[in-house]
């Protein structure tokens, strides 16, 4: 997906993989697993450093949990980079996972088809945080704080590349144009 929007993508497993990156995406997965491996391989400090230097950082689902400064459980331990409170598994178990169209401010008029899998939700928003999208009941599911972004849903599971292009613009890429022609990219597994 990232390659399709003109970006060179690489996997990050160790601190040395962070060198020379313009942006970092912390993807979905199990937040407890992510949290442990990030501590063990000493990724927390360099990622925080990267965010402080103004590099773009985006957390999706488990990644959102890792960016929060407060979560409703003791485990996992987040990095506290964004001023939001997050509740894990906010919708229940896997049978409650769902798909829903959202209106995302900044992406233009066309709705965005979002996929929520055992998804977290934001329950507290600090002053520097901007809500990009919320569920019909008002709970925020996409937020931005300067160069950082967090989403409850999984953009890696849909073909709509608008949100990726928006993130690339935060990472110093071309400005995001909501009016640009909409081309769905082939889904990458």
């Amino acid at each position: 997906m990232l390659r399709s929007v003109g970006v060179t993508a690489t996997e990050v497993r160790l601190p040395k993989h962070l060198e020379e990156l313009d942006g970092l995406i912390i993807p979905g997965g199990e937040s407890t697993t992510l949290s442990r491996l990030m501590s063990l391989y000493e990724l927390r400090e360099p990622v925080a450093e990267m965010a402080k230097r103004g590099k773009a950082v985006w957390g999706t689902c488990a990644g959102m949990i890792m960016l929060a400064n407060e979560i409703t459980e003791e485990d996992p331990v987040p990095m506290a980079l964004m001023d939001v409170g997050v509740q894990r598994n906010a919708f229940g178990r896997q049978v409650d996972s769902f798909e829903q169209d959202l209106h995302i401010k900044a992406l233009g008029e066309r709705e965005y088809h979002a996929i929520f899998i055992r998804a977290p939700v934001i329950i507290r928003i600090g002053d520097p945080v901007d809500v990009l999208a919320a569920l019909p009941d008002g709970r925020p599911v996409a937020v931005q704080q300067g160069n950082m972004m967090a989403t409850s849903f999984h953009p890696e599971l849909t073909a709509d590349a608008r949100i990726h292009r928006y993130f690339v613009s935060l990472a110093g890429g071309p400005a995001f144009d909501p009016e640009a022609p909409l081309i769905d990219t082939p889904r990458v597994r």
């Binding site: 979905g28 997965g29 199990e30 689902c61 488990a62 896997q94 049978v95 409650d96 996972s97 769902f98 798909e99 996929i115 899998i117 055992r118 999984h154 890696e156 599971l157 597994r189």
Partner: peptide, 13 residues
């Protein structure tokens, strides 16, 4: 809920 996307998407995670 219960769509193949949501079901196979979980395995992706």
């Amino acid at each position: 809920t219960g769509t193949f996307t949501v079901k196979s998407g979980h395995a992706q995670m």
